[in-house]
């Protein structure tokens, strides 16, 4: 039933069991479909990254005429590794798509292989991001939380650390986006771990195809978010 149809129902007129009520066919043996749960969660993540993007644009100064932006925004040369990592994530998403298709066809071996490849590429992306982070630090864009909190003697929080992500706020956003997106990936890897466990169980558990499909959906979303964020980073 459409949203309008739902909202215009006249409940006081209809004693009896409504024809539209429940008995959903898509439960696939499980009590409830986690697809809706995932959909709502991805909505939350979308809101999160949209807000980061808004903050990015405001700080960047696109709203300069409205009083935002301090003119301290500087272009950054994207590290080549950023492109490589993005390519790895694309491949990871493709592998998950393959796993979803294989699961739908019941090709268990192909599904297992593509699932492992997809997850491994996801981990590779995460490792790549860490390497990128270290490269940034090596080129002088320090995180005070690293250089300050861990090594400065005395009370670490009492005074500003010596080294900042100072100067160009574009770099600060790069760190922020990588950190939040990294957390998003870690969440995906947890779901992937559950799917792997089920895929390698002795018997085929009910709903495996569904969970692989949802895993793939999560990964595509992950890629989409990264591409949007990558686009922002290229805008500097």
């Amino acid at each position: 039933m459409s949203v309008i149809g739902t909202l215009t129902e006249k409940p006081w007129l209809t004693p009896g069991i409504d024809a539209a009520a429940i008995d959903r066919p898509d439960n696939d043996g499980r009590p409830f479909d986690p697809g809706i749960f995932l959909g709502v969660f991805l909505g939350v993540v979308t809101a999160l990254f949209l807000l980061i993007a808004s903050a990015y644009l405001m700080r960047m100064g696109v709203h300069g005429p409205l009083g935002h932006g301090a003119g301290d925004w500087g272009a950054i040369t994207e590290p080549p590794l950023l492109w490589a990592n993005t390519a790895i994530l694309v491949l990871s998403s493709l592998a998950f798509q393959g796993a979803g298709i294989a699961a739908g066809r019941g090709a268990r071996r192909a599904m297992r292989i593509t699932l492992i490849v997809g997850g491994a590429l996801g981990i590779a992306f995460l490792v790549g991001q860490v390497v990128l982070w270290r490269e940034l630090q090596a080129s002088g864009y320090f995180l005070a939380i690293h250089s300050g909190l861990c090594t400065v003697s005395g009370d670490p929080l009492a005074q500003p650390a010596d080294l900042f992500i100072s100067g160009n706020p574009a770099i600060a956003f790069l760190y922020l986006i990588m950190a939040v997106h990294g957390l998003h990936i870690v969440g995906g890897l947890v779901a992937w771990g559950r799917a792997i466990r089920r895929a390698f169980a002795g018997t085929v558990p009910a709903g495996l195809a569904r969970s692989v499909t949802l895993c793939a959906r999560y990964w595509h979303f992950l890629l989409l978010v990264w591409l949007a964020m990558f686009g922002l980073l290229l805008m500097t």
Partner: peptide, 19 residues
């Protein structure tokens, strides 16, 4: 929105950024 604001302010407070 509060989550993003909290994380960004933590960056400002702990990592010396200027969001």
């Amino acid at each position: 929105a509060l989550f993003v604001a909290a994380i960004m302010m933590l960056f400002d407070r702990l990592a010396g950024t200027s969001f």
